[in-house]
Design a protein around this nucleic acid. Structure first.
Lengths: 195, 195
DNA sequence: GACTATACGGAACGCACGCTCCGGTTGTCC
DNA sequence: GGACAACCGGAGCGTGCGTTCCGTATAGTC
C-alpha cells in the first residue's frame, strides 16, 4: 500500500520500503508479545533505527493502533461477508470461534479488545467490530438459533472471556472444551450432551 | 501476627509494626492496581522508606506473593468449610460466585490466578486452591448437580474467564448476566430460562 | 543512663524504555 | 551528474522503577 506524507506527497521509495518493514515487524512482535514489546526490538527486527519508526508513527501507541486497526478491519470484513450467509446459525458460531482463535494467537488483539480503557485511533474500528458482531447476533437470534436475551455487550464480554480461556488451554496443552460449553449455552435451548 | 527474623529471633517492636504497616498498604494497593503499582507508593502509604520494605521482603515480587498467598489461603479456608456443607450444589455455585466477585475487586488475584507463568512462593497456595476447587466440583458432580464431563482444569479456566467478564461488566456499569449463562451451562441439563 | 545490635529513611545507582537530535546518506528531479 | 530535499541510523536524553547503601535513630538490656 502506498502512503503519503503529511503534505500529501508520495513517500520516497526507501521511506515507503522502511515503513512497510516496520509494519511487518510490528505485526509479528505485537502479535507475539503484545504492547509490552520494546520499540527497539521492532526497529531491530525491521532492520531500521528507532528514529526511522518515529518518522512514520508519532508514538509507539500509534504504531500499535495501526497494526491492531488493520487486524480488526480484516475481522470486520470477514463478518460482513458472513452476515449474508445462508445459515445465520453457522455464520454466528463460525465467526465466534474464528475470532476466539485468532485473538488467542495474537496478543495484540487481546490487549486491544480486552482493555476497557480506550485507544485513540482504533476506537472507530472497534465500534465497527461491535456493529458487525451485533448484526450477526441479531440474525442468529431472529432465526431462533441463539437465545434472545443476550445483548451485544454481553456477547462481546463472552467473546473476551473465551479468548482468555482459549489462551489458558493452549498454555496448558489441552483442547478448550469449556468453550464448547459456552457456545452451547448460547444456543436457544437444551444443548445436546457434550461428548 | 508476630514474625521472626532470619536468625529465628523475635522482631523488634518497631520492626514488627512497620512490617504490618507495609503488608496492610501492599494489600490495599495491590488490590487496587495489581502488581503494577510502584514500590515507592506502597512505602509512602505505609509511612516508611523503600529500604524498610527490603528489610522484610527480599524483592517486590516476594511482597506480592505474601499478599496474594494470604488472600488465596483465606479462599482455600472458605472452600474447606463449604466442602462439608449439606447442599453440594449450593456450595459449589456459591463458592464460584464468591471467588469471581472477590477476584473482580482484587486486581492482585487476577494477576496471580490469571498468569500461566508460575510465581515462586504462592505456587503451593495455588495448588491448594486447585485441590479444594476439585473437591467442591467432584461433590457437586456426584450428586448430579453439575455436568460430569467438566474437569478441574476446565473449571479453573471457566473461573478465570468469568472473572474477566465480571471486571468488564463492572467497568461498563452493567450486571454480569453472561456469568449466569455460564453457571447454568455447568448444571446437569436443560437450564431454566434466564430472566 | 549507657551501650549495642537492630532497624530506619531516603539519597543514589543501574537499567530499561520511549523518544529526540543531528551528522551523514540516498533518492529524485532537472 | 549535480543539487537539494527527504530520509536514515544510532548515540544519547529524560524518566520511572526496582534495589542498594550508609549515616542516623531507637528499642532492648544491664
Amino acid at each position: 500500500m502506498t502512503t503519503t506524507n503529511n503534505q500529501g506527497k508520495r513517500l520516497r521509495a526507501d521511506a515507503q520500503r522502511n515503513r512497510d518493514r516496520v509494519l511487518a515487524a510490528a505485526q509479528e512482535l505485537f502479535a507475539a508479545e503484545g504492547l509490552a514489546v520494546p520499540l527497539d526490538d521492532i526497529a531491530r527486527r525491521a532492520g531500521v533505527g528507532p528514529g526511522t519508526i518515529y518518522r512514520h508513527f508519532p508514538t509507539k501507541e500509534a504504531l500499535f493502533d495501526a497494526v491492531v486497526s488493520e487486524r480488526i478491519q480484516r475481522m470486520v470484513h470477514d463478518a460482513r461477508e458472513l452476515a449474508e450467509a445462508d445459515d445465520p446459525e453457522q455464520a454466528f458460531f463460525d465467526y465466534f470461534r474464528q475470532v476466539v482463535e485468532q485473538a488467542s494467537f495474537n496478543k495484540d488483539l487481546c490487549d486491544a479488545l480486552g482493555s476497557t480503557g480506550r485507544q485513540p485511533k482504533s476506537e472507530c474500528r472497534e465500534t465497527d467490530f461491535d456493529t458487525v458482531l451485533g448484526a450477526l447476533l441479531e440474525r442468529a437470534q431472529q432465526c431462533g438459533a441463539v437465545r434472545s436475551n443476550i445483548t451485544t455487550a454481553e456477547l462481546r464480554s463472552l467473546l473476551i472471556g473465551c479468548i482468555t480461556m482459549h489462551r489458558r488451554a493452549a498454555a496448558e496443552n489441552r483442547s478448550p472444551q469449556e468453550i464448547e460449553l459456552i457456545l452451547n449455552a448460547m444456543r436457544r435451548c437444551c444443548p445436546p450432551p457434550r461428548r
